[in-house]
Computed example of a mutant assay.
Amino acid sequence: MFARKNRAEKTADEAWEHLSHAWSAAGESAGRAGERVSSVTDEALARAGAAADALAGRRPARPWGLIAIVALAGLAAGWAVASAARAALERQAEEEEAELAETAVVVTPTYDDH
């Protein structure tokens, strides 16, 4: 039981060190860049925020925008596949109908005069 606590404390300490380093790196980058915030600073701040959230026990937010895009792409792909399948079935039905028309035997009644 103590080993788990020590491992958890060690992990928390390492995470805190990473968080502190990320915050200081972000601060230094922001100080050097002045008004402009570079993508490196944004990444450092995002990582530091994620580390702080993880230490606080908060789960990361779901990427709803990405989920919506994937869902729309799935719907579009499903619609395309369904349309292609429907067209193939219609083509097959037309071919079968044409084949039946070609091979059909027309029986005409004959009237014998007796």
Rank of each mutant, 00 (worst) to 15 (best):
S20D: 08
P109L: 12
E14R: 15
A25F: 05
I69A: 10
A56D: 04
A61M: 09
M1Y: 02
R86P: 00
A30N: 01
D53S: 13
P63V: 02
A15I: 03
P109D: 13
N6W: 11
V81E: 01
A71G: 08
W23A: 12
H21L: 14
L72K: 11
A85T: 11
G78E: 01
E94Y: 05
A8T: 06
E94S: 06
A22Q: 10
A15D: 06
W64T: 10
R58P: 05
R58W: 12
E14K: 11
A51S: 02
T41S: 15
V70I: 11
A50D: 08
S20Q: 14
A48G: 15
L55E: 00
H18R: 08
R59S: 11
H18L: 09
A104D: 03
N6T: 07
A61W: 10
R7L: 10
D113R: 02
A71R: 15
H18C: 05
S39D: 13
L72P: 03
V37L: 07
L66G: 11
A104N: 01
E96A: 14
E9I: 03
A54G: 08
G27T: 14
A51Q: 04
A22V: 04
E14Y: 06
A82L: 13
E95D: 07
G74S: 10
R36E: 15
A48R: 04
A85I: 03
T41D: 09
E95A: 14
G74Q: 01
A51P: 00
A22N: 13
K5E: 11
A15F: 15
W79G: 12
